[in-house]
Amino acid sequence: MRRKLLLASVAAVAALFHPVAFANSNAGSKLYISPTPQPNEMAKADFEAITDWILIKALGNHGEAGSSTNFNNYDTWDISVIQKSKGLTDAGTPDIEVARVPTDPGQKAVRAAAKTNFNYAFKMVRNDATSVGGTGTIIYNRGLVAGPKRPFGRNEDFDIEVFTIGYNQEEIVVDPTTVGVAPTNTVVPAITGTAEVGEDLTASTGTFTGDAVITYAYQWFAGGVAIVGATTNTLSLTSDQLGKIITVRVAATNASGSAMAFSAPTTAVIA
């Protein structure tokens, strides 16, 4: 028992100084191409405006991409440390390898692009969403396409094609997005006041959970029928409501959605 406690203590201390690392694999990520040539450098909004993205299926490998910047060196007689400055940046020339599917629309788009001297937009969607319904990292770029090369190989090697993408601008990376929490009612609204003609009733919002900011809207009902214009948290009772029960509906809304809840009814309105 003492040995188990000692081992547990050592593990706990080790965790403080060596936190568990987390890394995502490539599994589940997707690569898309737009078959429309893009002659000019593109901003994030330009990529997001594209509507003809085509998924490239059966992607087996994507080579290294991203920014690689040259360093220029210069030394003079009177210094002891070589001086450096940044030069030109290469956005990458990765090979992409696919298991050849002649009828796949994405592969057909890449083959068609390779026969031209135009630049095409690419979109990679990583499988690293941080919440259910959220989106993973999106990486945009634009470049030329060459190929395919065919490795062929031996008897049991797969039939694959290898294309080369020459990216002509720096990538644009959009971090994962999360889906917000819409309102959920946990305590129904309540009505306070006396159900009597000439008196005022007041509605509480009840309790709604969800992401801030939550806004509230009201609708009062008499005998189950909406009272026209009664859309604030107070209601002045008139003879029109005489003999009827009163309820209120509260709608809670935030950026992720909305929810509604009804109060319990009052007693019938008296004179």
Results as ranks from 00 to 15, higher is better:
2 R>T: 08
6 L>C: 07
6 L>M: 12
8 A>P: 04
9 S>F: 11
14 A>W: 13
17 F>I: 07
18 H>P: 00
20 V>W: 09
24 N>Y: 15
26 N>I: 04
27 A>T: 02
29 S>R: 06
34 S>E: 03
34 S>T: 04
35 P>G: 00
40 N>P: 09
44 K>R: 15
49 A>R: 10
51 T>V: 11
53 W>A: 01
53 W>T: 01
57 K>S: 13
59 L>E: 08
66 G>Q: 07
68 S>N: 14
68 S>Y: 11
71 F>I: 14
74 Y>R: 11
75 D>P: 06
76 T>I: 10
76 T>G: 09
77 W>I: 06
79 I>E: 14
80 S>L: 13
84 K>M: 12
84 K>Q: 15
84 K>N: 11
88 L>R: 09
93 T>H: 14
94 P>N: 07
95 D>H: 04
98 V>M: 07
102 P>V: 09
107 Q>I: 00
111 R>H: 01
114 A>V: 00
119 N>I: 05
121 A>M: 03
121 A>D: 05
122 F>G: 03
123 K>D: 04
125 V>F: 05
133 G>Y: 07
133 G>E: 10
137 T>Y: 10
150 R>P: 00
151 P>R: 00
154 R>N: 11
157 D>V: 02
160 I>Q: 11
160 I>F: 14
162 V>Y: 01
162 V>R: 09
162 V>D: 02
167 Y>P: 08
172 I>C: 10
172 I>Y: 10
173 V>W: 14
175 D>W: 08
176 P>A: 02
180 G>W: 12
181 V>N: 12
183 P>F: 12
186 T>Q: 02
186 T>P: 15
189 P>Q: 00
190 A>S: 08
191 I>D: 01
193 G>A: 02
193 G>I: 01
194 T>R: 12
195 A>E: 05
195 A>N: 08
197 V>Y: 15
198 G>V: 03
199 E>P: 02
203 A>W: 11
203 A>Y: 11
204 S>V: 04
204 S>N: 01
206 G>C: 05
209 T>W: 04
211 D>E: 07
212 A>Q: 10
212 A>P: 13
215 T>Y: 11
216 Y>H: 14
218 Y>T: 10
221 F>V: 02
222 A>T: 03
223 G>P: 10
224 G>R: 04
226 A>S: 12
227 I>E: 00
228 V>R: 13
229 G>N: 06
231 T>A: 07
231 T>S: 06
231 T>C: 04
236 S>R: 07
236 S>D: 03
239 S>L: 15
240 D>E: 08
246 I>N: 12
252 A>I: 03
253 T>N: 04
253 T>P: 01
256 S>T: 05
256 S>C: 03
257 G>T: 04
257 G>Q: 02
258 S>I: 01
259 A>S: 08
260 M>Y: 02
262 F>H: 02
263 S>G: 03
266 T>A: 03
268 A>W: 01
270 I>R: 14
271 A>L: 12
